[in-house]
């Protein structure tokens, strides 16, 4: 017999700290597999966010930098422009990318920085303990909107792919999910595309991944899968929003 799924060498072989049923571990593995398959581990620099994935600097087996909350795209810009031969990715959650870091996100896309952004959307703040995120659904409770998100008070969720698709500089935008094994496989393809685009110098790529946070949603891991499929997907439809092939075009 033979081991079919070897652990990717781009991931450090240690236990990750994430909660049971959290999607970060899945996406970490996918990014590492892509790095392995493209043979780019030794020239990749990753940017770790603030949030649960702050410890990803320990997990990815490539050069890593950890920066201030939300500033990932700016840090990635600095690295990429000074070391154009490097492959640079920024790994960010919804608070990091769509709240405090919205300006950096929008402007790195507007400049069409040749970087890849992996964006985990789980509709909640994980590390700080379940506060409302910019992507929290209407009616979804969080510790800073205990009765559920009320648009009159808290406004509406931000759809990052749709928003960025208005920018000419955003060359590749795709939304996927890791709530099913099939979704995981698709997510890996999208991540691979985002890295390939960078290798080919095609400009700004972002993959938005709908992911589970059972701990802060207050559900079991299995219910977490259901939450993604039934609650998140209707608001955040999966698909390709922009790709270099359909220049300027939109889904």
């Amino acid at each position: 017999m033979e081991l079919v799924n070897k652990k990717p060498s781009s991931l450090v072989d240690i236990k990750m700290h994430y909660c049971p049923g959290c999607g970060h571990g899945i996406v970490h593995r996918l990014i590492a597999e892509v790095m392995d398959e493209l043979g780019i581990r030794e020239r990749t620099v990753g940017v770790a966010p603030v949030g649960c994935a702050v410890f990803s600097d320990d997990y990815f087996n490539c050069d890593m930098i950890q920066g201030p909350h939300g500033r990932g795209p700016a840090i990635a810009t600095g690295i990429k422009r000074s070391q154009p031969g490097c492959i640079v990715f920024s790994y960010q959650g919804d608070g990091d990318l769509a709240s405090i870091g919205m300006a950096e996100t929008v402007h790195s896309a507007a400049r069409s920085e040749n970087i890849s952004i992996i964006f985990i959307n789980n509709a909640i703040y994980g590390m700080t303990g379940g506060q409302m995120a910019p992507t929290t659904l209407i009616g979804q409770p969080a510790t800073t909107c205990p009765k559920g998100r009320d648009p009159k008070v808290n406004g509406y969720p931000i759809k990052v792919c749709e928003l960025l698709s208005q920018l000419d500089g955003a060359r590749f935008l795709e939304r996927t999910s890791v709530s099913t094994a099939q979704g995981v496989i698709k997510t890996k393809k999208a991540i691979k595309k985002a890295f390939q685009n960078q290798i080919e110098g095609k400009g700004f790529s972002l993959v938005e991944i709908l992911s589970m946070c059972p701990t802060n949603w207050g559900v079991t891991p299995l219910q977490g899968l259901k939450f993604v499929d039934e609650k998140m997907m209707p608001l955040y439809p999966l698909g390709v929003f922009r790709s270099p092939e359909q220049e300027g075009g939109q889904k």
Partner: peptide, 9 residues
């Protein structure tokens, strides 16, 4: 003791 350790650990 507060922090990441309270989640699952």
């Amino acid at each position: 003791a507060y922090g990441a350790e309270m989640r699952g650990g």
